[in-house]
Design a protein around this nucleic acid. Sequence first.
DNA 1: GAAGCTTTTTGACAAATGTCAAAAAAAGAA
DNA 2: TTCTTTTTTTGACATTTGTCAAAAAGCTTC
Lengths: 186, 186
Amino acid sequence: MSLVKHLSSFISISKPLEKEITAISQKISSLKGEIIINVDERCEQLFFVEKGLLRGYYFDEDKEITNWFSQEEEFATCFYSFIAKKPSFEIIQALEDCELIQLNYSSLQNLYTKFPETERIGRLITESYYIKLEERILNLQFKTAKERYQKLTSSKPSLLQRASLGQIASYLGITQETLSRIRSEI
Amino acid sequence: MSLVKHLSSFISISKPLEKEITAISQKISSLKGEIIINVDERCEQLFFVEKGLLRGYYFDEDKEITNWFSQEEEFATCFYSFIAKKPSFEIIQALEDCELIQLNYSSLQNLYTKFPETERIGRLITESYYIKLEERILNLQFKTAKERYQKLTSSKPSLLQRASLGQIASYLGITQETLSRIRSEI
DNA sequence: GAAGCTTTTTGACAAATGTCAAAAAAAGAA
DNA sequence: TTCTTTTTTTGACATTTGTCAAAAAGCTTC
């Protein structure tokens, strides 16, 4: 689904706005495995995944920890870096060949100013992502490894085929050995 | 600090807007221990803590789990309930005598429409709260109980005096016995 | 299809954290 | 104060999950 179409599910998009969004956004393709944003770079792009799968991860003492996945019709960015204009602690990698739409930080800010109605979209989208994070916290707080895995199984079943065991395990906050054992006993 | 003053750190607030905000917001007081929003109620209020401390918590099989604390100059609401207009799974309780400013969901939506510049404030605030949640996830994902406690000690030292051990423990995703042991060995 | 990677599984054991119960300490109420 | 209730600490033990190492399985690439 295109970005404009996705956005129009939040608020109706006028023709001039649609034109502007198209004008300031770039389509890019990434190959499987490609690093799109590296650690210590400032992430100045907001990505919208048209096709494919991205993940954000970081290193904690040589251990790779996956922080998020973004699949079709989801946004992706190093949120902290993007918003706070600081170097990113995380790395964005394409886990599949991807078609992405890229929006630059400054063009997005200009868009907000030029088309104030987009502020609302920005707010609504941020709110919806906030709710997702909150749910993840509830899981990490007191659910067992197995429960967290089962929850993921039902909420994002396709992810289990598309990301590796190790990536999924660290996303759930467990080791891959533990996840492997959980999976074998179900 | 007043709400208007707090908001003006995000964006300059015009006189008419200030008036409007004052008009639609109500000051309320809550006594220590008071339940402000109960489970299964729809939470239609956004609170701004002028003085005191609130917590949001929920029950997971008879176990009380604290989900967040909000202290001076922070907002509080049952986010999911407020945004999705669904019954709340969490309970808001005053942990101290509080002075709160209360904004109704529908007046807030009207405010967004009447003063479009407030959309930006809404977005910026949501973004900043998103970043905080993200940081919490990083801690819950792979930090040990001790590391999480130490992080809280440095980021919100006053909380340790103001909330009970059990409340802090569940917020960190550990049992109070474990937290008690961590605390005694430091 | 063999050789060389990478990912997943398995095993043995260690460490962290949870559970349950009871004692001690602190806070509140009468 | 004294009594009562709540919170915190401590102990013994169970459970979950992690760690390290090696084997097995699955992919690539020539």
